[in-house]
Design a protein around this nucleic acid. Sequence first.
DNA 1: CTGAAAGCGCTAACAC
DNA 2: GTGTTAGCGCTTTCAG
Lengths: 339, 339
Amino acid sequence: MQDVARAAGVATSTVSRAFARPGRVSSETARRIHEAASVLGYHVNPIAQALQAGRTSMIALVISDVTNPFHNEIIRGAQATAAEAGYTLLLSDAQESSAQERETLERAVAAVDGIVLATSRMPDSSIRTIAKQRPVVLLNRALVDVPCVVTDNPGGARHAAAHLAELGHERVTYLAGPEASWVDGMRWRTLRENAPLLGLHARRLGPYAPTVAGGGGAAAEFVHHPTSAVIAYNDLMAIGFIRALAAHGAHVPRDVSVIGFDNIFPAALVTPALTTVAAPLRHMGRTAVHNLLAIVRGAQPRSQEPVTLPARLVVRASTTARSQQRSLHGRDLMTGARR
Amino acid sequence: MQDVARAAGVATSTVSRAFARPGRVSSETARRIHEAASVLGYHVNPIAQALQAGRTSMIALVISDVTNPFHNEIIRGAQATAAEAGYTLLLSDAQESSAQERETLERAVAAVDGIVLATSRMPDSSIRTIAKQRPVVLLNRALVDVPCVVTDNPGGARHAAAHLAELGHERVTYLAGPEASWVDGMRWRTLRENAPLLGLHARRLGPYAPTVAGGGGAAAEFVHHPTSAVIAYNDLMAIGFIRALAAHGAHVPRDVSVIGFDNIFPAALVTPALTTVAAPLRHMGRTAVHNLLAIVRGAQPRSQEPVTLPARLVVRASTTARSQQRSLHGRDLMTGARR
DNA sequence: CTGAAAGCGCTAACAC
DNA sequence: GTGTTAGCGCTTTCAG
């Protein structure tokens, strides 16, 4: 900047003003400054700016597992919203490890103006510790006194159950995800409470890892006591479940109707295409960042209640009417496995 | 830091040393300092550190499209390697727009020590401009005088062609990706040059968007002049192609054998499971960051040649012997579409 | 082994 | 409308 000021024959503060508050510099002076700047290839140094201003215009997005397709659209939404607001996104992949999440966060916390914690695996206490240092928005998890963005899990679970009831199913198995998952609790609880109202008997199996492999493990147990319908914690599990079932000689939806959660990208690609409770993934990313930036800029979080985004049921080919299905008995499947 | 120094009864420079060079401070003084620091919750301010040191310990990873499953494992590899080296990853999603890529890069460039450009959509000249300002490593693209990491596209294309030749195919269609894609050029060129040596006749259709929808568009054209085998620019296109073909009444591999590129996550999940030329995705991310950090730390790029990572053929269910297939004629398919 | 002081690049405050 | 100065929090001389 020194150089620019010298070249333009002005003081450094004038250069600074020319970049930050163009109105406060006479047009002639501004012209000279910008010319000198572009000749010299001068750009404002964001680090120095950040040091002096006390804010960095960066926000951190911490993801429990970038490898999970659930997060792709969330990242897209978050990045887009941040960029529109002139913020840069710092991405942290926790690799499903609470410890790793803490560590990388510790390093990043001082360098950002705010943090979005997506599907955090950290204990509540750690989250609160972070939230004391910087504005935090939780995505896909609720915690008192911390702003949250979640999908309407109760609504979604009800939609799923109602769909199965309409199709004439009477017994449904819920394939549970990680015990530590707040979302899993919400889904199962709503299902259990609402099933009776729909003439449905709900049962829970698990917990399983929220992955394709986890769904496979679920199938191995399910096969001993099948029901005509299944709701899985998420699409990944549903996909793994369906594949493993096929290896046991049972087919979806002919033998079992299956519903997933989230509507991740591959859900429409697998065969049969997966019926699922769709989350507005990109919108979740957008909303989380939007709300975070509002707080960063000084807004007071409106309410203690989590911001809830709607979930909708996407009916595809993995569910069918009970009357269209074969009746399945544990024995059939176990035999099927040996064939 | 002032506060810590006061509390510990030392000068600020001693505090600084206690954190950066523990050896240069007497153990007793160091103890007092660390105690005071933890009481006061003091952490080194990375921004101030960065300003004074002239480096930020951050690197940028620019991705053409976070929404594309191709990038998930790459991000994982990049983030893990950066974290291990004490670097923070700044993620930029270009949303497939060259302009957007430039803009976000412009904002980030001054804040990072180096940049990985993955599947960049920018023109060579823009990349060179960036590379003049900061160390850059290109992923999945080659450019003279800029360090690059690519997969062995020629080897991969040869594997694919050889596999088809072994299965007795005689004519293969290449479904081309974006014209601007360096990788696409490599793949098609190798295929065209090697096909004759394998007794294969290769033809090119396209370009198409490198997406599921693009593959669908390819199918609509392909159907008029089918061949028994197809190699698609990437897995996404292959998947879209297979689905669209089914809508036309043609099935894979019964009617057409299909090979994709990349081995993205959904490739193993679709039906039929996709035969594909697998790229070592996570390793690509790791290598790019690893090489970038070496340069950031002062290493001279060894050679002008791109670093080439091996590609291997993963044979799944979407390819089969020519002799096992139905013979297909344009007419069959067009009729199929009307059924 | 420790302290004092300068300066990284920027902007806000206060002159002129 | 423009110039001067101080200081953001840190590290790195240079003295002691």
